[in-house]
Simulated scan of single mutants.
Amino acid sequence: MTPHWISIHALIAMFVLATALPINMGVIAFVGAFLVGTLVAGMNTKAIMGGFPADLFLTLVGITYLFALAQNNGTIDWLVRLAVRAVRGRIAAIPWIMFLIAALLTSVGAVSPAAVAIIAPIALGFAARYGISPLLMGLMVVHGAQGGGFSPISIYGGITNKIVAKAGLPLDETATMLASLGVNLSVALLLFLMFGGMKLLRQRADAIGAMAPVRRVAHGQGGAQVHGDAEGGSFGEERRTAAPDTASLMDAPAADPAAEGSRLYRMATVAGLIALAVLTLFFKQDIGFVSITIGLLLTLMAPHLQKRALGQVSWPEIMLIVGVSTYVGVMDKMGTIDF
């Protein structure tokens, strides 16, 4: 069997093993890169590590860390409350507000499952209060998260654009982003019409104030999951570090005005997210370094939030992506990709 076929069969075995057992495929891929690289391709460690995507690793860590800070300091909850108040009693606009907020979060770096896990309990609380279909509200959140997921500074968009550019294929980052947003927006409009949207257009609330407390509708495992997303780990870290009575995002009190509930801190976070978009889109700065720099500035304002934010970084996904990328790099140097 030729070295090319050995590397291909090893890749297939990785998928089978990661599917059959609760083991992160990134760990398997790193071991595969080492074994195939040294024993089959005769590569040294330096050559194997040459395939490690350092820029992608920095991007993933930076934007997920920055987003975790924005979640923990109450900025997301604050933005949702402001947006809902802005509709001035137009109940039909609430599902679209949730769509836009979810799209905004993923467009600036939030992982889609994380954005949905944060916004869904809030959205379902509004659905229960104002008689909106919970199915409609949930689907609007999901499609909003997917709609913003391919912006040039998002995780999925960044990965896709780098892979396409590396392959030498035609690339239009704006077209990719708008295509994803357009498809999900069209589906959301169809769902809105199917699940009572026209009825909501005829309804109006006198005022939209503070809603009743909403308990979190989903909890992760006590520790980080072996594979899959990092929600279990982040929820576990949140339970260990948050105040005892912070049962939901909507009714969580601001324990420390300087860190948790400060209007100045929230405005600084929003300014940081805007700066991230401007510096990366218009000044072509590296999104990984920019996001970590902004995250550090926010952390200096509230140092005690760092531990919780680091626990919410999507380490399993990062391990998966960089591990598989490293193995693919070994296959590329072996000539298997061209084979």
Rank of each mutant, 00 (worst) to 15 (best):
A120Y: 03
L58P: 03
R129K: 15
T59S: 06
T64I: 01
G26R: 09
S112N: 13
V111S: 12
V31N: 04
S112A: 15
A128E: 14
I97Q: 04
S107M: 14
T38E: 14
N24S: 05
I101Q: 02
P113I: 14
P113A: 10
V36Y: 11
V84M: 08
A102T: 13
W96P: 02
F30P: 06
I48G: 02
K46H: 14
L21A: 12
I23M: 06
L66T: 01
L56Y: 04
R90E: 14
S107H: 01
A29F: 08
N73H: 00
V116K: 09
A20I: 14
A115I: 11
T64K: 01
I91H: 06
A68S: 09
L124G: 01
L35H: 07
G62Y: 03
V40L: 09
V116S: 08
T59R: 06
W78H: 06
A120T: 13
T106P: 02
I118F: 15
T106D: 08
A47R: 14
P22L: 11
W78E: 00
A70T: 07
F52M: 13
F99I: 00
A54D: 15
L69D: 02
N24Q: 11
F57T: 03
L58I: 13
I23E: 05
I94G: 03
V27E: 04
